[in-house]
Design a protein around this nucleic acid. Structure first.
Lengths: 280, 280
DNA sequence: CGGCCCACTTGACGCAAATCAATGTAGCAG
DNA sequence: CTGCTACATTGATTTGCGTCAAGTGGGCCG
């Protein structure tokens, strides 16, 4: 049963948060140098420790087992919860910016965050996409080394960095868990260096799709239909390519029936073919 | 006083370990796919915990203050020393290989180590050069994610991974220190992603020289004359370029009197010019 | 409904870096 | 000294991807 080449597949649950939260358009031009915008955070007004309207207990947290919190027993979870500020960020809003003092660290619970660095002339390199369960501010350093923006709407557990670090000092196994996350992150970064330094455009795109699928599978979202909530420009800036090259490459993969391009996503028709292109 | 364009400057203390330790030549062809060679380690025969012939005490360690060991008090230092196996590796020998079970972790005390990943077809990406004070095996994972080879002769403190991890469990502040190192490493990796994804050949070379100088300065080797013990191929594989492009770029920088190419190194004639080319 | 905007795609062309090919040079063995 | 080997430089040519520019289609607003 051969699949026909259509542009719109009847796939549910895809959806780039593009129309909602029409927050200042210029933000989308972030590819240019300014990056100075700090879109108002969609977060609760009082930012004290009990910003808990509609609060969901950590015990019910959908990403707990994939996050650093899996290292904690119920009592410890409560203690950490006391420090946490569940916070929402609207699509395209800024969680934090490069070089800014790190007041908070974050546990992503929903949505996707792009992490990037800008060169003075505006060139942008996305160094990663954070998914639910991922931790932002791993290094616990005084200042952030990268900027972070919500791709679509995002919810996080935000922790004041100092309080979090202090708690960490009392819970070595939590630090251990954090360190494991750092090791994993480093490993992804090294894979990405191979991609950026030594792979062709087609290999980059294939590799990107395959590894995004793997990451989603690890957090329980197994599917051959991959949601791509980020823009083509984001993908290009992640893969060290231009938007045109990404577009052409995806078109070619689609023409060869390896993938099927759908609105805000891609269906992997022949995943094994993609893996072999990715060359790993 | 203009500097003349000479090929050999009267600079001391440079020196690629090329002639010494003529260990199996085929190793130099490591750029091709085989990578299967495991050159016999130049390490002490009995590998028990007291492989201490000619052992230098940690207290005298030249890199202690730059390594993870700076987090330890004298007693702790002794305890860790009891686990350590000071080991030498000859030029071009392998410390460990990608995907191999991680039996040991390492603290580099002397020399330079290249860390790299290979694609199945032999393409190589060097993900970093480890210097004295750097720690190898940070992630403490079961298997190494990269391969490590001595560039010139190298000395390390080697620790059995499990014993090290066990000791770590009793010393949270050491884990904290290790985590700081991981954060630093991650930060370097992200910088490198920007380099590989978004910088031109000239910017890459300039950036490489500037940041190597900074790293050396941080461990006390401040100098405008930079030793480059690694080959041009290594530099190319680190910068995501070909050897020819690296060579041409260095020649151009030299022609413009920004650097002076000397055997096994480079003198930075106009560091500020390099920094502005690096565009940071 | 019509027009605008924006994200994306597609095509034509140009260029930076890769590839292919000599040539130069230092270290070492005989 | 001579030849050999490995590394590095330099030149000629090709090419993959970037740049520039035009075209498409969906969403949204007046």
């Amino acid at each position: 049963m051969t699949l026909t080449h259509v542009n719109h597949a009847p796939d549910a649950e895809l959806g780039r948060d593009r129309r909602d939260v029409p927050i200042s358009r210029p933000a989308e031009r972030a590819h240019l140098a300014d990056a100075s915008m700090h879109i108002a955070e969609t977060q609760c007004a009082k930012s004290g420790p009990d910003c808990s309207h509609g609060r969901t207990a950590c015990a019910d947290c959908k990403v707990r087992l994939h996050s650093i919190c899996a290292a904690l027993d119920p009592d410890e979870l409560n203690a950490l919860e006391a420090l946490s500020h569940p916070t929402r960020y609207g699509a395209r809003s800024t969680l934090f910016s490069q070089d800014e003092t790190a007041e908070s660290v974050f546990n992503v619970t929903e949505g996707m965050v792009r992490l990037y660095k800008l060169l003075p002339d505006g060139r942008r390199q996305i160094v990663g996409f954070a998914l639910p369960g991922d931790f932002l501010g791993l290094a616990l350093m005084d200042r952030f080394g990268v900027s972070a923006e919500a791709v679509g709407d995002v919810t996080v557990c935000r922790f004041p960095r100092k309080a979090f670090a202090a708690y960490l000092d009392t819970k070595p196994h939590l630090l251990r868990r954090l360190h494991e996350f750092a090791g994993h992150e480093l490993s992804l970064a090294q894979e990405q260096m191979v991609l950026l330094g030594r792979r062709s455009a087609e290999e980059r795109v294939a590799s990107f799709l395959v590894s995004l699928r793997e990451r989603l599978a690890r957090i329980g979202q197994k599917s051959v239909t991959l949601a791509l909530p980020m823009s083509r420009q984001d993908i290009a800036d992640f893969l060290g390519l231009t938007i045109e090259t990404v577009s052409r490459t995806m078109t070619r993969l689609a023409r060869e029936k390896t993938i099927l391009v759908v609105p805000d996503g891609v269906r992997l028709l022949r995943p094994e073919q993609l893996e072999s292109i990715a060359a790993r």
